[in-house]
């Protein structure tokens, strides 16, 4: 009896969820449609203001509530003590820069910011170009893309089965990398302990995931290059490499910068991979990981917030680069 009732209520729940879902989407769509229909009927004067309200205001509101306000709160907390009760001046920042491991952490963050985006974008571009004229690129692209669909927990286990090292010489290797090293006659080593190799091994995991992102975006950009341009350069006798470097890359330059920037930000924020693979030990930690440790392990919001602000400063050079770039693009247009 109870079981049947439970099943019925589960069914009811499912139905109500589905109706709720459909209604939400319908209401949202209707709101947008009504806003447009009404706006199009208004005069030019009203539209001059209305266009900001409809197009820009929702995004700004969400961004303000979700990110800007919390960012200011973080800034404020970075000058407070562990529980945010008392002001401590610059103490948290002083602490951050006098940590004994801080040099390792800064160095690693720098390596991540440079190597990870270049490698991901490079591989993504390579695959996008290689598959561009392929008859059936679907399977190849899907395989490259697949890591993006795997959660971090899944990725952690996958790479555990690659980097695992068996200290007992008599026991068989479980890690693929160790086994491959053995097949080629090398003595496997405890990969994740070797510094600075281990940071690069962690970056490999990140690149493995992010290449799919770069590939999809760059591939769409390459497809937007008109056939005629490529074909004309072809008829002019340009070699494959020349065509790539003189036509394809300049044509999608904007998109490449976008992809590089996005992945750089991703690399700056990375901590899941580090937590699952090394826990930040063996000199592999980065700022984002330290921030997480301070805020959620040590429960010190002060130092955690200070690290978050330092992380935020790391993105400023990237912003500056994009500003310069956008100016240039606008002047070219």
């Amino acid at each position: 009896m109870i079981e049947i009732a439970a099943r019925q209520s589960q069914l009811e729940q499912a139905v109500s969820k589905l109706t709720g879902l459909t209604l939400t989407i319908l209401i949202f769509g209707a709101l947008v449609a009504i806003a447009f229909a009404l706006s199009e009927r208004t005069g030019e004067r009203v539209q001059r203001i209305l266009k900001y309200v409809i197009f820009l205001a929702p995004a700004l509101l969400f961004l303000f509530i979700g990110l800007v306000a919390p960012a200011f709160r973080t800034l404020y907390l970075s000058f407070r003590d562990a529980r945010g009760n008392e002001s401590v001046g610059w103490e948290n920042y002083q602490w951050a820069f006098t940590q004994p491991e801080i040099l390792d952490v800064l160095r690693n963050t720098g390596v991540w910011m440079i190597v990870a985006p270049i490698a991901s974008t490079g591989f993504g571009l390579l695959i996008a170009v290689l598959t561009d004229r392929m008859r059936r690129p679907g399977l190849v692209k899907s395989l490259i893309f697949m890591p993006m669909a795997i959660s971090f927990v899944g990725a952690g286990i996958i790479w555990k089965f690659v980097y695992q090292f068996e200290p007992n010489e008599r026991a068989p290797e479980i890690g693929l990398l160790s086994q491959v090293a053995e097949w080629f006659g090398f003595v496997p080593t405890n990969w994740l302990l070797v510094n600075p190799l281990n940071t690069f091994l962690l970056i490999v995991v990140f690149v493995w995931i992010q290449t799919g992102f770069a590939m999809v975006v760059l591939s769409a950009a390459i497809k937007a290059i008109p056939d005629e341009i490529l074909e004309a350069s072809m008829l002019d006798g340009a070699s494959g490499w020349k065509r790539f470097s003189r036509v394809t890359v300049p044509m999608i330059r904007g998109t490449i910068i976008v992809v590089l920037s996005t992945i750089t930000i991703g690399a700056l924020k990375v901590f899941d991979i580090i937590r699952t693979m090394t826990g930040g030990n063996f000199k592999t930690s980065v700022i984002a990981n330290e921030m997480y440790n301070q805020s959620f392990r040590a429960l010190n919001y002060g130092t955690g917030s200070a690290l978050a602000i330092i992380l935020f400063l790391g993105v400023l050079p990237l912003v500056a680069y994009n500003v310069v770039n956008l100016r240039r693009e606008r002047s070219e247009r």
Partner: peptide, 10 residues
């Protein structure tokens, strides 16, 4: 214990 550093990765 055999390989001492490997304790950290086991």
């Amino acid at each position: 214990v055999g390989n001492v550093p490997a304790i950290a990765t086991t």
